[in-house]
């Protein structure tokens, strides 16, 4: 049918190479957060009681709600790509927009959570923090570092997906050329995976 045309369009591109490049970048992200996970594990083994008290200060309900938000955004992301592959541009755009909005929702909830911590003077460098046991200072240091770095990734992910939305609307990303959207999705899903680990580490099992 259109295989001849499709083949010509495929001639000067390397989708697997594009994806391999993205995965190699994601490897550096995994190792970046992996180092922080190792730091968390070591510090937790040094200060188990302080980590328990620190974890009790966090709002587990907000943590779980944000998990549902991010898992759902991962679903809409993968559905956006599936819709594009099936040739349904309207759905692909709607799902992608939904993903970006859910990312925003995550950050709004996160900002309320951080705001409450700042109101209680629980932030690195505060006078109140200096009075807490050393292990709790380490716990909150890791909490702000890891959730903060993750939050930056959510922001970057939203920007990348927003840029992709405009390319989708212009037709530069389309049913025949979707590897860019797929790579953007890979980044978004990795950000989701990192949060999957942050939830129990800080909110549930500390």
């Amino acid at each position: 049918m259109s295989s001849g045309h499709g083949h010509a369009a495929h001639a000067h591109r390397d989708d697997l190479g594009d994806k391999l490049g993205m995965w190699l970048f994601l490897v550096t992200e995994i190792v970046l957060f992996g180092g922080l996970f190792i730091a968390y594990s070591y510090m937790r083994s040094l200060y188990p009681a302080d980590f328990h008290h620190g974890g009790a200060e966090l709002n587990a309900t907000l943590g779980v709600i944000n998990t549902v938000v991010l898992l759902t955004s991962s679903l809409t992301m993968v559905l956006s790509l599936a819709a594009l592959q099936l040739g349904d541009l309207v759905k692909a755009k709607a799902f992608l927009l939904g993903t970006i909005l859910l990312g925003g929702c995550f950050l709004v909830i996160k900002s309320f959570e951080w705001g409450a911590k700042f109101q209680h003077h629980l932030y690195p460098g505060s006078a109140h923090m200096a009075t807490l046991p050393h292990g709790q200072q380490v716990f909150f240091g890791l909490y702000f570092t890891m959730t903060g770095l993750h939050g930056v990734h959510v922001l970057v992910g939203m920007s990348v997906l927003g840029w992709m939305y405009t390319h989708l609307a212009k037709g530069k990303i389309n049913q025949d050329r979707f590897v860019v959207l797929e790579n953007g999705g890979l980044y978004w899903h990795l950000v989701d995976v990192i949060w999957i680990f942050l939830l129990p580490l800080f909110y549930l099992a500390a």
Binding site: S74, M77, E182, G185, L186, H189, D192, V193, I196, F197
Partner: peptide, 11 residues
């Protein structure tokens, strides 16, 4: 959970 995301969502 992470494996599910890697295996299915990340294809």
């Amino acid at each position: 959970k992470a494996a599910l995301v890697f295996y299915f969502f990340m294809h």
